[in-house]
């Protein structure tokens, strides 16, 4: 985080709300812990001499809540990686993966595997058309063979069912 390293205590970060944006992460954690504590109350807590199913979740979510609450106050921005345009590529990657899971259910393994390999290599990793196409086709079929025929994994049938009799 070279950008962030220059300011030891966050004193020189941009002013206003942006200087505190890094506190969002512990805030989310605190809210998560608060919700877990609230839910734990619905389970039986009982007493220390006879702890119920809710006792342990209450203890650990309280530890989580207290530590993340302290982090809102004490954490320093040096720990945070700056967001950049390259971060958008990650969002693209997540979208590709989500599409893969959805297509996997609908189309089956081979077409969806081809799509994830091709899009990842061509669009996200900027490989050539020819190499991306070649590797995507070879990868989709060979991994289908390994999982379906060697490991006997019952992939969803989808549009294309390819086995060699396994």
């Amino acid at each position: 985080m070279p950008e962030a390293q220059s300011d030891q205590q966050g004193d020189q970060t941009p002013g206003g709300w942006r200087a505190h944006i890094f506190r969002l992460a512990p805030l989310v954690l605190t809210l998560f812990a608060a919700y877990a504590i609230y839910q734990a109350r619905d389970l039986e807590i009982r007493s220390l001499s006879e702890p119920g199913p809710g006792m342990w979740p209450l203890i650990v979510s309280s530890v989580m809540g207290i530590s993340s609450l302290l982090l809102i106050v004490r954490d320093i921005p040096e720990d945070y990686e700056p967001w950049s345009l390259r971060s958008a590529r990650v969002l693209g990657g997540i979208a590709v993966l989500a599409a893969f899971v959805w297509f996997f259910d609908v189309l089956g393994f081979v077409p969806s595997a081809f799509l994830i390999l091709f899009i990842w290599m061509k669009v996200l990793a900027h490989e050539s058309w020819r190499l991306s196409l070649l590797l995507a086709v070879a990868g989709a079929f060979s991994l289908n063979y390994i999982f379906v025929d060697v490991f006997a994994v019952p992939f969803p049938p989808g549009l294309v069912v390819i086995t060699s009799g396994g």
Partner: peptide
Amino acid sequence: RQGILASFALLVTMA
């Protein structure tokens, strides 16, 4: 190259 490795690693992970 890392992009090629990553795409295959992700596919193996998901499958």
